[in-house]
Amino acid sequence: MKGRKKNVIIILLCLCITLGLSFPSYFWTKKNVSSLTRWHNSKLSPVIMIPGSSATENRFDTLVELLNKDAQQQHSLLKVKVWNSGKITYTGSIKPKDNEPFIVVAFENNKDGYANILKQASMFNEAFKQLRKRYNFNNFKGIGHSNGGLIYTAFLEKYLDNDDAKIKKLMTIGSPFNFAEKSTANKTQMLADFIAKRSKIPSSLTVYSVAGTKNYASDGLVPLNSVSAGKFIYQDQVSSYTEITVTGVNAQHSSLPQNKQIVTLIKQYILDENQQVQTNKSGSQDPNQQGDANN
């Protein structure tokens, strides 16, 4: 029959083309695998968050909820708690197919003070090593609220280079790099130490330091100048350092993590853009972007 003959010819043609394509495919995969081996980049790229002093692992719940609202791809939330005994416990889980989960690392010892921040940085390092083993990621992004940003700084200077995971971006939110000092002329011990060891911070990093202002000088707790002191540590050391000031409603220190502008900033600067599913989309991404965030 004529129809059958046509089908047979087309099928044979397709099979031949496929077999023919196997040659370029062979070279492509060889090249791809060898370049992957060289620059072995895991698809999984979590956002690891550290809350500030006297906050628990639930500190970022509202933030994550806001980030997931209207997002095409839902990010999962894993909470890690490091106990003083060194024990590490997990709540929540990372969903399959989620390449950008949020991981919150909190500490039983969540007290303020330089000595404690150094302790927390070392505890964070333990949790980080365990997370690396469990989830096999080799790059990540960091968010630190308040003292969390200081813990991150200490971690980057003291521990990270032992490890082969790469931090791509770091956002500190209202982090008092000079504690409660209003003037940068008086450098605290911590700031002096951070500046002394700044060369240890990976130079490929991009840093955003977000400050809140309730009045002209502070967010109600942390002086604006103390947040700005971050520039002495990061500027000219990392590939890009940006300071962003947020004002208005919810710009007060402890409500910063659920501030609408900050949620938008995180979406814009910290999250990977390629997370969106490229099939049919109905969604608007985030319609109310930019505008009042940067001043």
Binding site: T18, L21, S22, S25, Y26, T29, K30, V33
Partner: peptide, 25 residues
């Protein structure tokens, strides 16, 4: 185990994903 481009013909998925192992084909 290796990455395979999107929309690869079914017959070639295993071949590419095994880094060009002829037995897979």
């Amino acid at each position: 185990v290796y990455p395979v481009p999107d929309g690869t013909p079914g017959m070639l998925v295993a071949f590419i994903g095994t880094n060009g192992n002829i037995m897979a084909l």
